[in-house]
Structure formats: C-alpha cells, structure tokens
Design a protein around this nucleic acid. Structure first.
Length: 263
DNA sequence: TATTCCCTGTGC
DNA sequence: GCACAGGGAATA
C-alpha cells in the first residue's frame, strides 16, 4: 500500500537497518528487475558503504560512499523484508541486498512491478518531481500557478508527480473529500481559497497516513479511510452515499452529497 | 489528454 | 473465470 506515508515508513526501517554498513551482495531475481539491474551493474554496489537512505515522493534513494545511488520504487505493492542473511528468500523477493551486519534487505513485490536501478555518481537518479505533497511551504498561489496550464480534472492532476510528489490514488481521493472538492472539478478553474483548503486537506490526510503506517506494524487499529474503497457506504460527514467513478483509467471514490461540482 | 502495458495475485 | 489492484512510462 505504498504512497508517501507507507514509503516513508519503509524507508525509515531501511535506514535503521542499512546506514553505515557495507554491501556484500546485490542481486536482482525476477527478469523484470534483472533487466533494470543486470549482474554486472549490480556488482558496482558490492563493497560500498551505505551512507544515506532518503525518500523523495514515492522514491527511495540508497546512497553509497562513492556517491552512486540505488533508486527504488515500490509501485503498487512493493515493500522491504528485513532479516538475517541466512533466511530463505521471501516468496516474492525481486531483489536482495546482503549487508556486512548479517542483514538481508529483500525487495518483495508480488506483481513484480517495482523498480530498482543503479546510478553513477554525478547523475541525478530522480525524475522531475514537484514539491513534496505535504511540504508546508506550498502556497495556494503556487498551486494555482502550477494548475493554470492544466486541462483536466483535479483528481487526475493530483496523481501527476510533477505537480506534487507523493500522492497516489488513495490519498488523492481522501484529500479531495476533506476539502469538499468534486474529483471531476476542472483543475485550472479552482480558486485560491479552495486550493488553500486542498493544501490543508492533503497535509492532514498524509499526516493521518503517516500515523497509520507507523501503527500498522505494531498491530494498533488504524483510522479508517473516509471514501477510498467505500462505494455504497454512507459519508461520515453528510450521510450521502459514497460513489465510485473511473477517471484516467482508475477508480475515484467521492461523496456526491458534500463534494459538489460547481459550474 | 486518454489508453495501453508492464506483472501476478486476490476477491467476487 | 474474470475484473480489478494503491504507479508510471510509453504510446496514439
């Protein structure tokens, strides 16, 4: 379930397990990942010390002591399994990184859509990304400027990582619900007060997500989502029925009662 | 700007 | 069986 909060949580576990340690082995296991990270490229990481693990949007960067970088993206359902090197490989392990502290980092992903790529020093491994979606420095004016040239509904634009980095299908829907904005509203026509509400809503949704992602592993009950995957259920704010529509090929959930389309 | 595809599993 | 899945790049 990796959007910004879940990737943040996973990157934290990775950081605690890996920073300061040397790579004994790196292997891509599935053909999809072997294509991105063939054995001769993977060998470049061997012997290097991991000096930093960072998250940017939904990407994770593993930086080595020679300033080369491994760039990891979980896509739909990637995750890290962290255990001793002697453990049998997890069923859906797509790449494995063994460290000199007897730690095996397994990139697990049933769908094999995750990406792992190695980048030489001096090249920026990240694609062009907008500001972090929960960056407190984002202003309504800046967001309005970013949306001015966009055609299309706000929901689809929120999924564009060049506009804001880190939002996916779940938190885009949750944020629009919190801000009482219809997902089909034309992005370019939203006014600043509305966008300010959206910015606040995005921050709140992601903060909830971060809290939930931290609790999830400890077994503590997590706060339920407001609209995502709740088609047919009543809205907790107005009681109207949550609807599901398709936008840009994916499901959008919203409340037809309190997320009105103005025109 | 909107589909199609990448993969493979789960749930209806 | 078959639709569908939280992402993103490549197409048309």
């Amino acid at each position: 379930m990796p959007e910004l909060p879940e990737v943040e949580e996973a990157a934290g576990r990775l950081r605690r397990a890996a920073v300061g340690h040397r790579v004994l082995a790196l292997r891509a296991l599935h053909p999809s990942q072997r294509k991105q990270l063939p054995p001769r490229r993977a060998r470049r990481a061997v012997g290097r010390r991991i000096v930093a693990v960072e998250r940017r949007g939904k990407y994770q960067t593993i930086r080595f002591d020679d300033d080369s970088t491994l760039l990891v993206h979980f896509r739909m359902d990637g995750d890290w399994h962290i255990g001793p090197c002697g453990d049998p490989p997890a069923r859906f392990a797509r790449a494995v990184l063994d460290l000199d502290n007897d730690t095996r980092l397994s990139l697990v992903d049933a769908r094999a859509l995750c990406t792992i790529t190695w980048h030489e020093r001096g090249v920026d491994p990240l694609p062009a990304l907008g500001p972090e979606a929960d960056d407190p420095a984002i202003t309504a004016t800046a967001l309005r400027n970013a949306l001015a040239a966009r055609r299309g509904p706000i929901k689809a634009v929120l999924l564009d990582q060049r506009v804001l980095a880190g939002l996916g299908n779940i938190y885009a829907a949750e944020s629009l619900w919190r801000a009482s904005i219809h997902p089909a509203a034309s992005a370019a026509t939203l006014r600043e007060p509305t966008l300010q509400r959206l910015i606040t809503a995005i921050r709140a949704s992601l903060a909830d997500g971060v809290r939930n992602a931290a609790r999830y592993r400890t077994g503590v009950r997590v706060a339920p989502l407001k609209v995502y995957d709740r088609e047919g259920e009543p809205c907790t704010r107005c009681g109207a029925t949550i609807r599901r529509i398709t936008q840009a090929g994916r499901s959008t959930y919203y409340c037809a009662g309190c997320q009105r389309l103005k025109r």
